[in-house]
Amino acid sequence: MLPDKQFLIDLAHTKMPFGKYKDRYLIDLPEYYVIWYHSKGFPKGKLGDMLKQVYDLKLNGLEELIWNIRRQYPK
């Protein structure tokens, strides 16, 4: 299932809420960190859904899509 527009806008503006990369935009997390979550298991809930989407975007080299959304829909 494809994410909806609002989910992608929210993803573009969501920052990591805890840990070593606290306050870093999810799309800007290091690739190795997102891969680690993929192998360990993503958290439950919306954060986990967003991290799964970040994994797929990074896997396909589509980070620019989220950066463009962040510029197009500033908070």
Rank of each mutant, 00 (worst) to 15 (best):
L47P: 13
L29G: 01
P74F: 14
E31F: 08
K44R: 14
K15F: 00
G41D: 06
R70F: 06
K40H: 14
R70W: 12
K46T: 14
K40A: 13
I27A: 06
L2M: 10
K15Y: 00
I27D: 04
V34Y: 08
K40W: 10
V54R: 08
K75F: 06
A12W: 03
G19L: 06
L59D: 15
L2T: 06
L11N: 04
I27W: 15
M50C: 11
L62E: 15
L59K: 14
D4E: 09
E31V: 03
M50T: 09
I69E: 12
I9C: 04
D56W: 15
L26G: 02
K20S: 04
E63P: 03
E31L: 04
K40V: 14
P3A: 01
Y37V: 00
Y32C: 00
L26E: 03
P74N: 12
F18R: 08
L47S: 09
L62P: 09
K40F: 13
Y32D: 03
F18A: 06
Q72F: 12
H38G: 11
F7V: 02
L26T: 01
T14E: 06
F42D: 07
P43N: 09
H38R: 12
F18H: 07
K20T: 05
G45T: 15
Q72H: 11
D4Q: 03
V34D: 05
K58N: 14
K15A: 00
D23M: 02
L57F: 10
T14R: 12
V54M: 12
L8S: 00
P43I: 04
P30W: 07
K44I: 13
P3Q: 01
K20G: 01
Y73I: 04
K58W: 15
R24C: 01
W67Q: 15
K44N: 13
D10M: 11
L57N: 06
N60A: 14
K52C: 00
G41V: 11
G19M: 07
P3K: 07
